[in-house]
Design a protein around this nucleic acid. Sequence first.
DNA 1: AGTTTTACCTGCATCAGTGCAGATAAATAC
DNA 2: GTATTTATCTGCACTGATGCAGGTAAAACT
Lengths: 150, 150
Amino acid sequence: MSTDVDPSVVFRRYLSAMVIHSLASAEAAGLNPTDYFALNLLDLAGSLTSGELARRTGLTTGATTRLIDRLEKGGHVRRVLDPADRRKVIVEMVAAPDHVDRAVAGARRRLGAVIGGYDREEQATLFDYFTKAAVAYQESTDELLAQREA
Amino acid sequence: MSTDVDPSVVFRRYLSAMVIHSLASAEAAGLNPTDYFALNLLDLAGSLTSGELARRTGLTTGATTRLIDRLEKGGHVRRVLDPADRRKVIVEMVAAPDHVDRAVAGARRRLGAVIGGYDREEQATLFDYFTKAAVAYQESTDELLAQREA
DNA sequence: AGTTTTACCTGCATCAGTGCAGATAAATAC
DNA sequence: GTATTTATCTGCACTGATGCAGGTAAAACT
């Protein structure tokens, strides 16, 4: 079995499998990649204004308006007026619609089982990694964003 | 600081950050999401026939031909004739073009630093997780695929 | 050998997401 | 209080990815 213990290969497979599943589940949930991307931005940030969303997606403000329209129509977000600046539109996530839950249910179940198979100490290591890796990804993304703007 | 130790929140953030970075780096590398998705399928499988690629992406064979055209033109894959069945076209990945490397360089560096910060035993735990999680994602993806076909 | 099926490719039409330019409304500067 | 800037929205046109129908070539079946 598994003669393949090269760490970089293991890691690449893991990444690819994750990416594939992400996009496949997005599609299963009826989301196009842009909308899925935006939803992840919102999930991470909590909420964003229309303009911030435009900046981070790289879309024009016009295209972003339509993006928000689609997400709102699909029940993923809602528009909230900023009380402090009434020109602004704050985009807030709402609870994920059923069809999204269904699309990711299988992965959630299986991953839960995998993680549940580790002892307390190992789980602590994993979650420490998740936390640090998230930061690493965010910094890397910001770097790409800065390059795009330059 | 971090009053937030809820594991599911940590994990969601990690996932979102990863997804965002994936899509952002794909875009930085000049890849549309579909092409990026296909490239990940190929990375995971090693190589696929045109038909298999069509099935897994959910595209028609016609659209898949154009997809392969784009990937070939971008220097990401090459077409190889199957010696056993000359109707078939095997799509093989070639070394990633420079612009892709550049797009993911920041993340690779940062993640390398994160992983390098763990001791040998912790790293073993992480890689064990990567291996098992990859399987979990693949199974979940196959499940979604089966549902789509049903 | 002839027929059917399989695998991929090509021409044409469509459509969804997008950019762009201009409109509106609110905040800020003068 | 008027002018300027900022934030979002709308109308219109475009483009590129996609589906569909038909075409070619090879394999499999009879």
